[in-house]
Simulated assay, not measured.
Amino acid sequence: MNLKNLQRQGKENGITTYAPIPKSQALDLVSYDLRMPDYNPLKNGEESAVTLSEWEDNQIVFSLKYLSSTDEREEIEYITANFDRFYSRIKQDSSYKKIDLKNGKTAFFKGKDFPSAELHWMEGGIEYNLHYRMSTLQFDKVREELVKMANSIE
Results as ranks from 00 to 15, higher is better:
Asn129Phe: 02
Glu123Arg: 03
Ala81Asp: 05
Ile76Lys: 01
Tyr78Cys: 07
Glu145His: 04
Lys102Thr: 00
Asp57Cys: 10
Arg73Glu: 10
Arg85Asn: 12
Phe109Ala: 07
Glu74Ala: 07
Leu42Asp: 07
Asn2His: 07
Arg73Trp: 11
Ser63Tyr: 02
Asn2Ser: 10
Gly124Cys: 07
Phe139Gly: 05
Ala26Lys: 04
Asp93His: 07
Val147Arg: 03
Ser94Tyr: 13
Gly14Met: 14
Leu27Arg: 10
Thr136Cys: 00
Phe83Pro: 09
Asp38Trp: 03
Arg89Val: 06
Glu75Phe: 12
Asp100Val: 00
Gly111Thr: 13
Val142Met: 00
Ile90Ala: 06
Thr51Asp: 08
Ser135Leu: 02
Phe83Arg: 02
Leu64Asp: 10
Val142Cys: 09
Lys43Ser: 12
Asp113Gln: 06
Ser116Met: 10
Ala49Asn: 08
Arg8Leu: 13
Ser63Cys: 10
Glu154Thr: 09
Gly124Lys: 10
Gln7Pro: 07
Gln138His: 12
Ile21Tyr: 13
Ala150Met: 08
Asp28Phe: 05
Tyr96Leu: 11
Pro115Lys: 01
Lys105Gln: 13
Thr136Gln: 00
Leu64Gly: 11
Leu6Gly: 08
Ala81Gln: 09
Leu6Ser: 11
Ser24Tyr: 11
Gln7Val: 15
Asn5His: 10
Ile99Cys: 03
